[in-house]
Structure formats: structure tokens, C-alpha cells
Write a protein that binds this DNA or RNA. Sequence first.
DNA 1: TTTATTTATACTCAAATTGAGCATAAATGG
DNA 2: CCATTTATGCTCAATTTGAGTATAAATAAA
Lengths: 323, 323
Amino acid sequence: MSANPSEILIDLSTAILRQHDERLQCRLVGESSATQAKRLPFGPFMPDQHRTMEIGLRHWVREQVGVDLAHVEQLYTFADQGRHASGEAAHIVSVGYLALTRTREPDKTPPEAASEDGDWQDLYAFFPWEDWRQGRPELLDAQILPALDKWLEKDAQAADRVRLAFGREGAQWDEEFVLERYELLYEAALVEEALIDQGKQGRQRPKPALGLALHLDHRRILATALGRLRSKLKYRPVIFDLMPAGFTLRALQSTTEMVMGVNLHQQNFRRLVEKSGFLISTGRTQRARGRPAEVFRLRHNERTERPLSGLRVSAGRAKPNSK
Amino acid sequence: MSANPSEILIDLSTAILRQHDERLQCRLVGESSATQAKRLPFGPFMPDQHRTMEIGLRHWVREQVGVDLAHVEQLYTFADQGRHASGEAAHIVSVGYLALTRTREPDKTPPEAASEDGDWQDLYAFFPWEDWRQGRPELLDAQILPALDKWLEKDAQAADRVRLAFGREGAQWDEEFVLERYELLYEAALVEEALIDQGKQGRQRPKPALGLALHLDHRRILATALGRLRSKLKYRPVIFDLMPAGFTLRALQSTTEMVMGVNLHQQNFRRLVEKSGFLISTGRTQRARGRPAEVFRLRHNERTERPLSGLRVSAGRAKPNSK
DNA sequence: TTTATTTATACTCAAATTGAGCATAAATGG
DNA sequence: CCATTTATGCTCAATTTGAGTATAAATAAA
């Protein structure tokens, strides 16, 4: 079927995220016909033309999507055979990337351009159980946990993983475990991709309503991206790569909340950010409904590679050995 | 020169770390002849035989190295062309992994087996500037920083990266920036690999004494491994995957110190670990020089995927939106 | 057999950080 | 002018962290 059974193609797929209109969005490409799932922007890695994979990735993104990337980070390289439908010409290894793009200054956005900038989807459409901003999603207790329990009845192997990932029986819900949760839902065949990979084209069984499906393992890449971003926010100031040049503290907080899927305490958030020393006032102010807010910008060009909230060395350093 | 210009081979290379005799060690394979650099255990990914890359990796490790792997984590996929000497038959993409192995119980180690278990090298032989346990390494001020400054004279572009990575001018030394430091030393041609990649076989210039060189980009993988491990220790309890089944708190602390390259405050470390609730006393005690120490073990089989020191959500959660 | 030395463990205390809330300021829309 | 909204300032208790001092229990040396 395939030209050469051990030929390997490397596919670069990128989860491009932006913050827009109070939503965290993800850029998609591909057919919007009902049968065909959309996919992340992608392209093959061509070692003869791209000196590094990141160069290749930027090439494809430039070609397919007209956005400037801020933070770019390699996520993971997936090569599971089970995930790729048979019939492919070669073995595909997909290298997933996370990229953040800065929103334009709210004022400067040309109004007509809004609909012209491609297919952006609400990220939580793919992971509705990850958004706790309005409280614990009802979906969890109404559908997910009962279905997982039913799955565990046949095979209790994964019981502990479910407990930790979904925060049951004393375990805390950890918002970083996005991938772990998605993988469990996949294993339990509660997401459409699992049915497709099993050859059941999603027509036989009732289509599970657990978020929108994507091409191949792209939703897995997206889950990795969200988990990584949530995790990274806590120790590296990547959040600013989702912000325009000038922004209010409230806007920064909203963006953080979108990513974390959780609401934060406004006054304490302000205290944290002020203490971090990353921001500097522009002197300008931005008015909306209530009291006008001060507009900040990133101090200098302190690049993103600095810890945001102090290091977690924990347990206290001591003096070096005297001897 | 090569059979097919765009043919891609995937190479799985693993940094296998263990803790042994108060040292953090790394398993190497390959010639010990003077001219040929050693390398990390490796093998090609063969999609026809390995369903996932991790399966392939475990296969090669089993074949080349007789150790049981505990924690295994994919690090990064490197595909830079500049890094691979020309003349290779195909484009090699190397997927780097980090693996931790548990030490045997100190009592149960057969004395003669010690020398029989392969080629283990002190990790800090490759990164002497990363070990601050005896205080700030003299190497830094004596050699590294002057050489970097000399490099920056020609091109000050990287000045800010140097400042952040090496903690100068107000910036703090961040022990996680292992890769960033190594890359800068590579770019400044202060490590042997840089000279080799430039075609100067290290004979012309005086060989820089900045740590032992490894095959191709294996030292870069090792740097990634150390940085990732240092980072991960702070929020996931992977440290236990370097420990034997039973251990004293002092042994746990020493291992943590080896990894972090920093000394910790003993009483506070104890407090932290006790509070974490990960450990449970075995009732046994272990005697050495001073007062005998209590021997602990991991509680149950709480797997490693739990936060060690409380989450860093920072800025405090608030109640969900009431509306 | 005492004594110094070494290591483990217990406890204290001040400083810093965090979590939660009250209070006030400065706009807008009746 | 007043109710509403949002931003910002400030307080206060609880918890965590950093850095010690004190004591316990062993070994090595005198």
C-alpha cells in the first residue's frame, strides 16, 4: 500500500492561540464540510529547505495563516501508530507546536478585518470540561464521570488515573492535567476521534457530545498545548505574548483566566503583577464602563524568559559547604 | 552523497540518570578511544516494529543497557542541520528522552556488580559550571564569563541572553537555564562540539576545558534533560524515581541537591517533605556515622503524577461568577 | 569509659506571601 | 444627583518560608 514501509514523514502541526473578544481562540484550517474534521495549520518538515523545524513551522504558518507569532514552543512529538488511520502512504510522525499571537491594539483593529482573518474557534469548544470560569461544568457530573465509571466497570486498571485526572475522592482538580483527561476520554472512547480510529465512523454509535473533534490527533496536540500553557504561566511570563502592546490589568487578568479556565481574585492579581515588576504604566488610561483603567505595557523588552512568580526551589537554600 | 536527499531517520537518544555514591550519573555507550566521543544510548525509531517511540526507546535501552527505567519523559526533538556533520546518509532527526532509574537498596547491592554495570559518568563532568554545591564554581569567573565577554565584543546581540542565563547585572542565577547556558557556550564556540561542527577538529585551537564533549548533539540533549529535571522537581515528585524503595530523608535531600546543584537547609527540607505527605515511615532505621536515621518509603503507590509542593496558581482563586 | 564529633530530629521566631474582604475613587447612565 | 460599575487602595489573619537554636542518639577517639 505504501511506497516504502519504513519511510517517515514529519508533520509540523501548530496550535496557534490568541485572545479575542473575551475568548481564547485557536486557529484552524481545512474543510468545513460536515464530514471532514478541521485541522491545525500544518506542513511537512523538509530538511533540505528548512534548517530547523521551527523555521519550517514559521514557513508553513506564514503561508497558510497570516499572523505574527510571538512565543513559539515545541510541545511533543507523537508517533503512535494507532492514531493514524491505515492507508497513509508513509509513517507520519507529528511534531506539535504551541504558538501565541499578540492581539492588535483594540483601537487599531480595522472593523471589517475582523471576519477576514481566518477560521478562529473558541478553544473550549474542544474541551468544554476544562472551563471552570462559570463554576464546575455540569457536563462533568452529568455525562463524563458516569460514562467513565461505566468504562471502569469493565476494566478498573485506569481507576487511579481517573481519580487523579478528574479530581475525585479527595484528589484536587488540577487544571494542568488537560492532556491526561483527554487521553482518558479517548481511551474510554468518549471522544469522536476514538471511534474514528477504531474504524467506527461515528455513525453507528451516538456521537459523543464531548467537544468538537479534529483531524487525526490534532486535538491531542491542542490538549497538550493548553496543559503546557497553563503550566508555564505559573513560572514564565508567557501570558504577555497573548496581549497587545498596551493593556489594562483587568485585560491581563481576563486573559489569564481564559487560559487557566478559572477566576482569579482581582485585587490579589493586581498585587501579584505589580510586585513582579514586569509592567510599567504608559500614563494613558482606557475608559469603558466604570472607572477608567490605567494602561500598562511590558517594561523594556524584558524578554519572556524570566520567572514570573518567584522560583520554587522550596525547602530553602543554605550556605555552600564551608569545607 | 546521500541516497535520498530528503530521507529522514529518527534517532532515539536517552539521557539515563541515576544517583550513585553521592553523585548524579549518566549512562554512556560507545568507544572510549581518545578520538571518538561517547554518546547516549540510542537507536533508530522503526515504526514497523515499535508502535510508539517510547516502546522503541525501551527496546533499545533494554538491548544496550541493562537497567529498569522508572520515569521516562520525552524532552525535545532536534532537527537542526547545522548540528550534524555533513556526509550523513540521511537527515537525522533526534528525539531526546530523559529516563530515571531507581538505585538498588544500598544493602542489596552486590559489591562485585558495581563495576559491571556499564559506563556511568558524573553528570557534572559535562557541565562543571552547573554544580554550585561547593559554592559558585570558580570556572565561571575565571574562564567562562571572560570568554563570553570577549565573544560579545564582536557581536553584542546575545548580551541580554548572557545576562539572564548567567545571572549577571542584577539577574539571578536560575538553575533551570541549563540548556540556555549550554547553547550560549556553543554559539560562542567555547565547547568542543562547536569546533567540531565548524570543521575545526579541535586540534587547531586549544581545546576548551569546559566539560567533556559528547557525540553530535548529545550534550545538548543532556543539558535539556538536566534543565527539565531541575524544573520538574519543583512541581512534580519525580525525585522519588531516583531513589531506592527505602531511603532516609538525608538521602532524599542529597539526591535533590545533586539534581539542583545547590545545597538545601536540612531542617526545612524535612519539614517540606513531611508536610507533602508523600512519605511514610518503614519503622526501620539506618545507621551510619551519627544518629541513626529513620527509613521512609513512598506512601502506597501514589504515582508520580501529583504536585509536590502545592500548586502555583498564584493570585488566588475566587468564587466562580455568580451570574 | 568518658569525651568530642557527627548526624538526625525537634522546635522557635521573624519575615514574607497568600487568601479574603472592606473601603474608596472615578467613571457612566439614568 | 443617584445608582451602578469598574478600578484601585488597604487591612488582617493564616500560612509558608528562611534561618536559626536546642536536643537526641549514634560512632570514633582519648
